[in-house]
Simulated assay, not measured.
Amino acid sequence: MTRTPRNGMTAARQDTVVPAHEELDVPVPGGKLAVSRWPADDPGAPVVLALHGITANGLSWARVAHHLAGRVTLVAPDLRGRGRSGRLPGPYGIAAHADDMAAVVDALGVGRVVLTGHSMGAFTAALTAVRHPHLLTALLLVDGGVGFPVPAGPDPDELITSVIGPAMRRLSMTFPDREAYRAFWQGHPAFAGSWSPWVDAYIQRDLVGEEPELRSSCSLEAVRTDGVDQLGEEVSGAVRRLPRPAVLLWAERGLMDEPQGLYDDQRLATADLDPGLVRTRLVPGTNHYTIIVGDEGAWVVARHLLAAAGVAGTEGPRATRSR
């Protein structure tokens, strides 16, 4: 495993700075997985392993790291086929990611971790908990991890595109320079009023290639494979087979900041979750992205992670209500 220090980014508010992070290369089958790590002030502090969404990368967790403020260590891999792990070959699929996470925990030698994931990362976290129950002390799912029956008929690619929209289409696009890619994302309705240096660093990490043909690092094969795999019973049903209780935080609004989010009271009721196994909480005022990259959403996620890690002296999460 190799280690490269990275400088912190200037935050949206001038009186704060995103904590500096390290870049690690962790051996996994087929090569090395890129991992971002925000160390705790205390080397013996608990460790959080955070998994990103289907076309994202580990820096999507940077704002959460800011609110964790060095009280725990946050480890956020670029999953196989994304970010700086974009060249890692298959096999892809949620089970492959789960096994990669076991390799990361073993390579870092951190013992058991608090496991969390956003969107597809939440499905991956749930399956990791099922396949490797010895790895975790607690589980937090963020706007993902709970699946619903798939309607008959649609082609899987069409179904995936209907859910993640522009995030899927951009994988076949090229951009003349980094500013063009920034403009593409700044035009996304989910980020209106929520742009920050954290978001900029996260989206810029996605770019590979040379001007004037920059493109997303995400492997289209990986996204297709993982997206279809996520719809299957083994993955979508993992939340009903968890080895320990979990919390699901869900965003009020959707991927395009539309009023209908991925979850709502009715959808969660039809999911027939065991309330003793999965507690669900709404995070008002957030959409699918800003629940981790927006300031308020990241604050709530960080407070839940600190509580899950058993960090003393942290107040309970605000702006949530039990369901």
Rank of each mutant, 00 (worst) to 15 (best):
P5M: 14
T10L: 14
A11L: 08
A11S: 15
A12V: 09
V18D: 02
E22M: 07
E22H: 07
G31S: 09
R37S: 07
A45W: 11
P46S: 00
L51N: 08
V64N: 06
V75F: 11
A76K: 09
R80M: 11
G83N: 09
G86R: 09
G90A: 14
V105Q: 04
D106H: 12
D106A: 10
A107M: 10
V114N: 06
L115W: 08
M120D: 01
A122R: 04
A122Y: 02
A129K: 07
R131G: 00
R131L: 04
T137S: 11
D143C: 10
V146L: 06
G147S: 14
G147W: 03
F148W: 08
A152C: 11
D155R: 14
P156K: 00
S162H: 01
S162D: 11
V163C: 04
P166H: 07
P166V: 11
F175S: 04
G187A: 02
S194D: 02
W195I: 13
D206L: 02
L207H: 03
L207V: 13
G209R: 00
S216R: 08
S216K: 02
C218V: 15
V223A: 15
D226C: 13
G227E: 07
G237N: 03
G237E: 05
R241P: 01
L242A: 02
L248C: 08
L255W: 00
D257W: 01
L262C: 09
L262D: 10
D264Q: 13
R279G: 04
T280W: 03
G285N: 13
T286F: 15
I291H: 11
V293I: 15
V293L: 07
G294I: 09
A298Y: 08
H304W: 12
L306F: 01
L306G: 15
A308W: 13
A309T: 10
G316M: 12
P317L: 09
S322L: 13
